[in-house]
Design a protein around this nucleic acid. Structure first.
Length: 185
DNA sequence: TAGGCCATCTGGTCCT
DNA sequence: AGGACCAGATGGCCTA
């Protein structure tokens, strides 16, 4: 990660005035994935691209500095889109491995992250309890895992119990949390 | 209709 | 220098 101390930024109007951000994608498909979503995305992007090309503004002449800077911006946008798609794919992969109720409703990103964190913590606590602080294949104790589970934050956040709880207790608590999460409490 | 969630654009910053 | 990463802004869609 990088340094977090950035000066506050001020939103400036787009340098390329062909359109403002939201106007470029007027028909975004509903959230979801699959071939239909992908197809809709492609056609939407093609239309957006066309709309940009036909915009009421005069296109810069070939080889102009403005054209190359617009071109760089478009390429940058595309890379950013790809990056976000990869990020979303990772979110989807994470959703698929987190047990949760109401599978018909897609977990939001924040729900996915929160449940994943608590799921990991519950599994960690369970493993520690079952192995008495040791993991199979390791000679010594597992200081990092142990220290992690000793952190006071776990009690403060209330999601998971102390490491003395019976093994099934951790997952039981996680399960309870999943339900309360989905109920919006 | 308000609020939540999201995709996208954008410019600044960091890294290679 | 160029790409990756990040966060703010914006507007669309959906649901209660």
């Amino acid at each position: 990660m990088k340094t977090k101390s950035r000066p506050p930024r001020r939103r400036v109007p787009p340098q390329d005035p062909e359109a403002t951000p939201g106007e470029r994608t007027p028909d975004r498909p509903p959230p979801g994935s699959g071939p239909d979503a992908a197809k809709a995305l492609r056609s939407r992007r093609a239309r957006a691209q066309g709309a940009r090309a036909e915009g009421g503004r005069r296109r810069p002449g070939p080889g102009s500095r403005r054209e190359s800077s617009v071109q760089r911006r478009l390429e940058s946008n595309e890379r950013e889109r790809q990056r976000m798609h990869k990020l979303n794919n990772a979110f989807q992969a994470l959703r698929e491995v987190i047990p949760h109720v109401r599978a018909d409703k897609k977990l939001s990103k924040i729900e996915t992250l929160t449940l994943a964190k608590n799921y990991i913590k519950s599994l960690t606590a369970t493993i520690l309890t079952m192995s008495s602080g040791r993991l199979p294949g390791l000679d010594g104790p597992v200081p990092k895992l142990y220290q992690h589970c000793q952190q006071p934050q776990q009690a403060a956040r209330g999601a998971l119990g102390a490491s003395e709880a019976p093994p099934e207790g951790h997952l039981q608590k996680f399960s309870t949390q999943i339900h309360s999460f989905r109920e919006g409490s």
